Amino acid sequence: MDGNSKYYEGCGQEGPIRCIFLCEFHHTAGPRITCQVPENYISKDIFDTVSHYIIPKVQLQRCTLTVTLLGSKILGFPVRIDNKKYARNAYYFNLCFVCDAWARTVHLEPLVKKLTEYLLSMELETEWLSKQSKSGDAKALNSLMQQVMQDINSRRMCTLTGNLSYR
């Protein structure tokens, strides 16, 4: 009997964050994962199956969304920034936490929202997310997501300090 066999969906137990990923709607490629920690935790096939829920229509923007699929629960807070500087005059992104399907995730909702608001303000101020996406080099974002996942899983808290820069 493995360590998780006693857990079932709706059991009320909190579990670790298994993955954090950032996805966006690319103006020519469509929905895609820009960065994920650990790499390839969510496959392209699984992402393609749920992408229309993770990067939803306007009515569901800035709402906490949870999708359960194939043993995983994906929690996100999708955002759209309207601005003529972006292709198609908008930039869509969603930072998502992935947990086990049985895990209670309601306590993570304020965290995913707060982290998304942090990334939103960085994008509005310096275009931090979209610049990393355009360059294909998301090292700073990858490092941020690793820190958040490690801190939340080990200490149940996370404090982001310092300047996140893009080169």
Rank of each mutant, 00 (worst) to 15 (best):
M1S: 13
L120V: 00
Y118D: 11
F93S: 08
V148F: 01
L69K: 13
L120P: 00
I17R: 06
D82V: 06
D82Y: 10
M149V: 11
K57D: 13
N142D: 14
M122S: 08
N163V: 09
H52W: 08
D45P: 02
D45A: 14
L115N: 07
Q61V: 09
D45C: 07
R156D: 15
T68I: 07
G76S: 15
S135A: 13
V50C: 12
P31M: 02
I81E: 02
L65T: 15
Y41M: 04
L108T: 00
C35I: 09
T105I: 12
F93Q: 08
S130V: 07
R155W: 02
K114Y: 02
I81T: 03
S121E: 13
V106L: 09
T161Y: 10
I46M: 14
L75W: 02
R18N: 13
L108V: 02
S51R: 01
M122W: 01
T161G: 12
S143T: 15
L144N: 05
L119H: 07
L129W: 00
I20W: 04
S165Q: 13
S165W: 08
C96E: 10
L22K: 04
V67N: 10
Q59F: 05
C158R: 06
S121V: 11
V58N: 10
A29W: 00
N94Y: 04
A103W: 03
D82H: 10
I81F: 05
N4H: 12
R104P: 00
Q146V: 13
I152K: 11
L111W: 05
G12Y: 10
Y53V: 08
G15K: 03
H27C: 04
L144F: 10
C11W: 12
K113A: 12
P38H: 03
I46G: 01
P31H: 00
T66M: 10
T49Y: 13
S43F: 01
L119W: 06
F77K: 06
F25S: 02
T28L: 00
I46E: 14
H52E: 12
Y166A: 03
T116F: 01
P31C: 06
L119G: 08
M1L: 11
E39D: 12
K44F: 06
L95W: 09
M157S: 15
Q59S: 15
K57C: 10
C99M: 14
G71Y: 07
Y86K: 00
S51Q: 06
D137P: 05
H107D: 14
I20P: 04
N89Y: 05
D48I: 04
